[in-house]
Amino acid sequence: MTATVSRKSQGGSFVSLKTAGTPPITQSGPKRPAGTLYRGREGMWSWVLHRITGVAIFFFLLVHILDTALIRVSPEAYNAVIGTYQTPIMGLGEVALVGAIAYHAYNGLRIVLIDFWSKGSKYQKVMFYVVIGLWVITMLGFVPRHLINVFSH
């Protein structure tokens, strides 16, 4: 059984999705599936990370709106809850949160460029490493300062 699909991509080059689905056990032609454009490569992992960080940010957002809504209840209620955000464990959680947001932001801009920039799909792989680089720079700027704020108060 072979599953072969060809389609013209937006960029104008033909994309062979020979390996969509489970690769067949016996196969005429090349022994290994020809190099996949997507699976197991930067395109796939950027997408996986985008989903995971997106879900994580969504659930934080639900909680964050509820805790901020406590300013409408009383100063004491808000301060009691926000105090739990200022503990060392939550301080590390905020590092993870900002890491997720920064990745989702930069990779989201990469997706916009892939969709709207004429050379976007050509440079999607390069842009993934630019995303990683910007993320590292962002975290280098944020993490030390944040951890000092968390652990010195």
């Binding site: 901020t68 300013i71 100063p75 301060n79 926000i82 200022q86 944040h146 704020n149």
Partner: peptide, 15 residues
């Protein structure tokens, strides 16, 4: 989180 004392400065008065 970055300006001033960051997360440790957030309280009712700040908001």
């Amino acid at each position: 989180l970055m300006v001033g004392d960051g997360v440790s400065a957030i309280d009712f008065a700040f908001v």
